[in-house]
Design a binder for these strands. Sequence first.
RNA 1: GGGCCGGUAGCUCAGUUGGUUAGAGCGCACCCCUGAUAAGGGUGAGGUCGCAAGUUCAAAUCUUGCUCGGCCCA
Length: 1063
Amino acid sequence: MRGVNYLLNRNKMTDTPKNEAQDAAEKPDYKDTVFLPKTAFPMKAGLANKEPAILERWENIGLYEKLRENRKGAEKFILHDGPPYANGNIHIGHALNKTLKDLVVRSQSLLGKDAPYVPGWDCHGLPIEWKIEEQYRKKKRNKDEVPPSEFRAECREYADKWVDVQREEFKRLGVMGEWDRPYLTMDYHAEATIVSELLKFAESGQLYRGAKPVMWSPVEKTALAEAEVEYEDITSTQIDVAFEITAAPNAPELQKLIDAGEKIHAVIWTTTPWTIPVNQALAYGADIEYVLCDVRKKVDINWIDDASTEITTVGSDTFDAPVRKALVALSEIDGIPWQLVKALDERSSFSIHYNDRSPIIKGSELAGAMAKHPMADRLSVPLPDGERLGEGVKPSDEHPHPTLSLKGDGLKDVSFFTKPRPFLDGSSFVTTEAGTGLVHMSPDHGEDDFDLCKANGINPVFAVDGDGVYREDWAWLPRGDERAGSVINKKFTAKDGPICSDLRDAGALLSASDDFQHSYPHSWRSKAKIIYRCTPQWFVPMDKLSKTKEPQEVTDTVRPEPVEGQSAPHASTSSAGTDDVQNEANELTLRQKAVKAIADTRFVPEKGRNRISSMVEGRPDWVLSRQRAWGVPIALFLDRKTGDYLNDPVVNARIIEAFKTGGADAWFNADHQEFLGDDYNLDDYDIVTDILDVWFDSGCTHVFTLESDIWPSQSWKADLYLEGSDQHRGWFQSSLLESCGTRGEAPYKAVLTHGFTMDKNGKKMSKSLGNTIDPKKIINVNGADILRLWAASVDYTEDHRIGDEILKGVTDTYRKLRNTFRYMLGGLSDFEESERVAPSDMPELERYILHRLAIVDAQLKEHINNFAFGPYMRTLSSFAQDDLSAFFFDIRKDCLYCDAPSDPKRQAYRSAMDILFHALTRYIAPVLVFTAEEIWQSRYPDENDSIHLKVWPEVDAAWQDDALNDKWALIREARVAVTEAIEPLRRDKIIRSSLEAEVQYPLQDLPISSEEFTELCIVADLTDGALSVTKTEHHKCGRCWRLLPEVSEDGDLCGRCEDVIHG
RNA sequence: GGGCCGGUAGCUCAGUUGGUUAGAGCGCACCCCUGAUAAGGGUGAGGUCGCAAGUUCAAAUCUUGCUCGGCCCA
C-alpha cells in the first residue's frame, strides 16, 4: 500500500499530498540547523571561459619567474624542448607532446625540483623556403632575381610569424615556460653556435666531401634528408633490356658461343628506364644459376630454323625463330622452377624459349665478363648535325668545384657508351625475387650501384642535372634535344618515350610496359618523385676513428684529408708528436660512440633503445649539405688546388665571431678575405655556399640552449628529451650524433618517446580523410584542462585515440573530480586552525583514510618518477571516487551535517579533510592546471599566490598503518556484503534509504563494534546474527533523518540533534 | 617489400615467472536519495582476451601463421 500511495502522490505534483512523509513535513523544518556544505565554487566548470583569465593572472604575477625564484638552489630537472617546426598551426600531436612535457616539468617542480622550461623552434629549412617561393610565384616574381639576403630575411620573418602563432597556442594549453625568451634555431647566437659546432667537426677531421647518391628532388633541385621524403604507391614503366655479352672468359660455354659469332645477351629488368643512359656495369649473384634462353621475335616465320622444333615453348608461338640468346636467372620460386624466365616471357614482346639442353651458367662464371651498352652501336653512328654526340667539356654550374673529379668519360664524346660494361659480383644485393637476376648498375643513381662500382674503380659521371635533365653535353637525349625531358617525367620514361623508343630501335628492348605498381619515394613538400643522384655533398663519417675527447689544440698545420665517397679507415688528424698510445685507446668511431651513449641512456619506454640502436648501427654517413638558401652555411673555404678545406682555428674563430653579430648572413654577405686574414689569399679558395641539413641545426640545440649564458637556468646535459617515436630517426639521433661527435656522449640522460594520436577508430588522422581533430576546438569547447586530462589518461607509450566518445569520458572523469573538490571546499568552509585535531587523535576511520592517503601518495610519487601519468591519474581518480566520495565522505556526511561544530569527531573529520584537500589539490595541479588554481583560489584567495608554487604535500610516515589497513579491508568487505543485502529490499520497495534498514550481520568475525558498523553502513541498526535485512520500526529524526529508537514520532528530534540545537 | 611495436568489456586502462569463475574506473540499465542536486549512493548487464593452428595437465600470457592498425625504412 505504501508504495502505491507514494507513486500516486508523486504523480499528482500539484496536490497537497497526504502521507506520512508530508505529515512529518508539518513538524518544524530543521534544515537551517543542519551544517550543509557551503561554497561558491561552481559545479559547472565553464573552463573555456575561465582559463584565459587565469592565464592572464599568471602572466601578470609572473608565475614562471616566481616559481624559478621559489625553487632557487633546489635540485635541477632540465627537460630540453625539441623544437617544433615554425610553420602552420599546431595539431593534436603538438598538443599531446607539449602537454606531456608540461606534465613532466610541473610534476618535477611539484616534487620540489627546479624545473625550468625553455621552449624552442626549428626555423630553417625547405618548407619555409618553399612557402616564400610560393608567394613569389603568386606575385609572378622570379626567385633567382631576388637578392639572397632579401629572400632570407623573408624566410626569417615568416618563421617569426609562426613562432608567435604557435607560442600563443601552446600557452593556451596551459604550458608553462619561458615564452618570452624561447630559443630559435635562427637566432644569431644559435646560428653562430651551429657553425661553431660544424667547425668542431671540421677541425677534428669528422667531415669529408664526397660524391654519393643522395635523395634528390628534381623539382626543388635539392638533396633531401630522409625525413623530407615520403613513400607513395605509383605506377612506373618496367623494362627488360638486353646487353650484348662481348666476352666471358670464365664461362667457357658462353665464350664458345661468342667466338662462334652468336649474339648472347644479359637481360636486366628495371623500373627506372632513365638510368639506362647512365649505365656503367652489370651485377650478378655469384651463387645464382642462369639459363641461356632463345629469344625469338613473335610471328616471324621467316626466322624458323631446324632446332626450333625441339625447343620447349613457354610462350604461345612455336613458329618463332631464335634471334638472340638471353641470359636470365634460373631459379625456383615457391618450388616452381623457371619463374623468372616465364615472367620475362609473359611481359616480353618476344618469346623466350628454353629446354633441358639450354646452357646453365653459374653466376660466378660471369666474373670478368664484359657487355656492351645497348646504345653503343647506335650512338656511335654520327647524326647529320652531330648534336647527339656531345661537343666537348663544358663546366657545369652544378659542379663548380674543379677539385672533385666530375668528369665522366661521356663528357667528350660517345666513348662513355662504347666502352665495355663489366660484370661485377653483386651477391650482397642481387636477388631472384623479381627481375632477371641480373642488375644494371648506375653508380650515379643507386646506393648499391655506387658502392659496388666504387669498389671496382668505376666513378659516377653526373649525367643528370639538378632539374632531372641529362647534361647538355651528354651523348644521349641531352638538354636541348627536342626529345629531352626530366627523368621523373612519366612521358619521358614511358614505354613509348624517347628512351624506350631508342632502345627498341636498337633492338635491345625485350619488354616495356607502364604498369609496374610499387611504392616510390616522393618529396614530402612538393609531392614530386625524387631520384637518387650523385652530387658533391658534405658528410660526417660514421666509421672513421676519432678521439672521444676533442684535441686540446689544433695547429694550423693539421689538414684533415677529405675522403671521397668512403670514410677513411684511420684518423688522419692526430697532431704530430702526440702520444699515439693514448690516442689509440681514446679512438672510437662516431658510430661506436653513439652506440655506447645509447647504452648509457635511460629510455622510457625501454623499447625505444632497440629502435634507435638499430638505426644508429645501420645508418650511412650523415649527409650535412643542402643546396638551398635558408639555413646555416657550411662556412668553409676549399683549396682550389688540393680540394681540401681550410682548417685554421684562427680563421674559424673569425667566422664564428661574425656569425654572433650578423647571423648566417655574415657568411653570404661577407668580405671573405677578412675571414682569411693575411695568411691566405681568397683567390686560392672556393667559398662553400651549401647550407647545413636542418637536422644539424636541431642537433645543436643542446649546445646553444643548455650551455648558453642566455638561459642561466639551463645546464648541460639534459635530464630528459621527450618527443614522438619518429624522432628516433630525427632529433634524438641528430642530437646524439652531434653531441657524440663533439663531446663523446649523449646530450641527454633519458629519452622519453610517445606514440601518435589516431582518430576514434585508431586510424591515422589526415586532412584528406577529414578525420583530424583540432586541439583548438577542444580547448574552446571543453577547455584545455580536458585536453590535458585526456593526454594524461591515455597510454602515450603506444599509439592512442581521440574522439567525441573518448572526450566525453574524460569530461565525466573531470566532473567527478571537480565535484569531490567542491564537496571538500563546502565541508571545509570556515575551517579554523583552532579546531584542528592531530591525526594521532583521530578516530580509526580518519586514520585509515590517512593511511590510504600515505599509500596513494607513495604510488603517485613513483608514477611521476616513471613519467606514468595514466596510472597517476587513475590512482588519483579512484582514490577520490572509491575511498573518499563513495566511502569516507558518504559515511561522515551525518557527522559533518549534524554533529555540533565543537564535536571532536566532526573536528577530526574536518581536519582529515583539510589534509586531503591540501594533498589532492597539489596532486591534480600538474594535470588540471586551471582547475587546481580555481580550487585553490576559492579557498585561499590571494592575487599573488598560486597552487603551482606549492610543493608536494608532506605525508607523515606514521600515517601508514598496515595493521589498521588489514582490519579495515575486512570491514569494507563486510560493508559491501551489507549493502548488497539491502539491495533486494530496496528493489521491492520495502525500504528506500539504507537508513531504514535494520541489519543482522555475523559481527563476531569483525573487529568492530555494532555501533560503529551501524554508522559505517549508514543503516538504522546493525546487530549480531546471521545476515538479514528488515525494515526498522524506528522513527525518523526531523533533523538528521536517522531512524532511531529514541525518536518517538517521525519528525521529532533525536537526542544528539536535541543537544546540538538546544545545547 | 623489410624491421620494430601493438590489438583485453561501449570508452580509458590493469592483468606478476603460463595456474580458480579475466579485473578496475567511466559510460550504460535499473533502484534509492532529493541536505554534494545538471550532484550523491547502490545493484546489475557487458569480454570466444584480433583470427587460426600448435606446445602444455593448464594459454590473455609461450610458438608459428594470418589479419588489422601504427612508426621507421626501402
